[in-house]
Every structure is written in structure tokens, then in C-alpha cells.
């Protein structure tokens, strides 16, 4: 039975590693400028975690195989180096590795959160509500009109509670159901939650950030490949959570200009 256990554990370890080595289940191709750092961090962590995982399972299996059903007369022996050796190994090998990962990984985090967006970044407001995203472009004046929560009415498509009759800044605001951004241009996404907590997750963009009701947060990114990608909500927001999504279109600059003009006419 001990041998069966040993073989099973080792087979499970190998079996678990195969899909990873096959690279079938990996994040979709990255389209952001900061993404490579995250991807690199992910693969480095995978190597270290993978080695720890395989080593621990193999040794567990090996020891169970070797030290079960030992004759009663056999003497108990201690692992060479004893507890001191193991503690040292744990601190040096695993602890330091983990800390090193953390320190180097901070670079990827910093590239998303500690670098402020450039002043000329394209400002777009994203609003999340049960259960859809809407986006607002400031229009030619470059300014967003104020939000009046009491005016929010999805029945009249006033998703942001705008009052263009009284707020001149709102007049040229463009509200869309799809997020289109020009390629290779930094985007500063201002995030506003209308009702409960939501999240903005674009796998390809390597961006995930919660919308916090009562607190406007922002993220910034630069997409460097064109295409159409899914934006999904990853913060449980209610019964329609599973269907809360929108699309991100990364367009070439001329396509983006055309798209924006067309959206402006539809207001």
C-alpha cells in the first residue's frame, strides 16, 4: 500500500505538471505595454513553485516507499542535519526565493500602479452598474460634465445622470456601451461604480481593478495590439454577474477617430 501511495503521489505530481508544460492553459496573448513584466513574473514563479511542488511530492512519495514496513528491530534514524538543517533549508531556499520573487515582482506592480499616467493620456470614464459597463468620452472640450445621481435613468439611457441642458461640459460628452481606445496611446481610465462593487478585467490587457462604490479609482494602460477583447466583471455584483461584460476595441488612430465621430452622432 505504501508503494501504491508513493507511485500515486508521483504520478499525480507529474500529471499536474504536464498541462503546465504543454502551455495549453496560459493567459491569452498580452496586448499591453506593462504586461510582459507580469508574464515574466508569472513564468518565473511557475518555475519556482513547480520545482518546490515536484520536489516535495517526489520526496514525500520516496520516503513513504522507503520507510514503511520497516522491521520492528530497525532503529529510528534522524534526517541528516536534523531540524536545524531543515529550518535553514526552508529559510534559505524557500523563504529567500519567495522574498526575491516579491521584490522583483514589485517592479511589475509598480509599472501599473506607482507610475502616474502621463498628462496627455486619453481620459475615459468607465461606469459599472448592475449589470453592464458604460463609458464616457469627454468630447472636444476635454471635460466631463458632472454626474447627478438623481438623474440617472437607464430607461432614458441617461446612464451617467448627465444634465446637458444645464451643464455645458456635458453637452459634448459621448456615452458608449463599448470601450474603444486608439492603439499605442496611453489611456487613463477613471472608474466609477453606480451601485455595488464591480470589477474591470481584461485578460489580454493584464488589467484587473475593482470599482469601489463611493470611491473613484483609476487605472492606466497602453494597448499595443489592435483587436476586440472581452471586458468582464470579476466582483460578485448580483444575479446578472455572469453576464456583466462589455467589449474593448483597440483601434488604429484613424479607425478610432471615425468610431468616435459616429458615436457622437448617436447621442
Amino acid at each position: 500500500m505504501a508503494k501504491v501511495f508513493a507511485v500515486t503521489v508521483i504520478l499525480i505530481a507529474i500529471g499536474s505538471a504536464i498541462p503546465i508544460l504543454m502551455h495549453k492553459w496560459v493567459p491569452p496573448v498580452d496586448i499591453s505595454t506593462h504586461g510582459p513584466l507580469i508574464d515574466e513574473q508569472l513564468s518565473e514563479t511557475m518555475v519556482e513553485a513547480g520545482i518546490s511542488f515536484l520536489a516535495a511530492q517526489f520526496i514525500l512519495g520516496l520516503f513513504v516507499w522507503k520507510y514503511s514496513n520497516t522491521p520492528k528491530s530497525a532503529k529510528i534514524r534522524n534526517f541528516p542535519g536534523g531540524a536545524t538543517g531543515l529550518v535553514t533549508a526552508a529559510v534559505l531556499l524557500v523563504g529567500l526565493e519567495a522574498m526575491a520573487l516579491g521584490i522583483f515582482g514589485a517592479k511589475a506592480w509598480a509599472s501599473v500602479y506607482f507610475t502616474p499616467p502621463k498628462p496627455d493620456a486619453l481620459k475615459i470614464q468607465a461606469q459599472a452598474g448592475q449589470f453592464a459597463f458604460y463609458f464616457r468620452y469627454p468630447g472636444p472640450d476635454g471635460r466631463f460634465g458632472p454626474i447627478h445621481p438623481d438623474l440617472i435613468n437607464e430607461g432614458t439611457q441617461n446612464f451617467f445622470g448627465l444634465d446637458p441642458d444645464h451643464d455645458p461640459d456635458s453637452k459634448d460628452d459621448i456615452v458608449t456601451a463599448e470601450l474603444a481606445v486608439p492603439v499605442n496611446r496611453e489611456v487613463h481610465l477613471l472608474m466609477h461604480a453606480k451601485d455595488v462593487g464591480h470589477s474591470f478585467f481584461v485578460r489580454e490587457l493584464r488589467i484587473q481593478q475593482d470599482f469601489v462604490p463611493g470611491l473613484d479609482v483609476s487605472v492606466h494602460f497602453t494597448a499595443n495590439k489592435t483587436g476586440r477583447f472581452e471586458i468582464v466583471c470579476t466582483q460578485l455584483c448580483g444575479l446578472g454577474h455572469y453576464n456583466m461584460k462589455a467589449y474593448l476595441s483597440v483601434l488604429s488612430q484613424p479607425d478610432y477617430d471615425t468610431w468616435l465621430k459616429q458615436q457622437a452622432t448617436m447621442q
Partner: peptide, 12 residues
């Protein structure tokens, strides 16, 4: 009574 679909917020 207003009726809406939260999954498709335009439905009203």
C-alpha cells in the same frame, strides 16, 4: 410601475 431588466439595462 417601472419594470427593468438588470442584465440588459436598456430594457425598460
Amino acid at each position: 410601475i417601472p419594470v427593468k431588466c438588470n442584465i440588459h439595462p436598456w430594457m425598460h
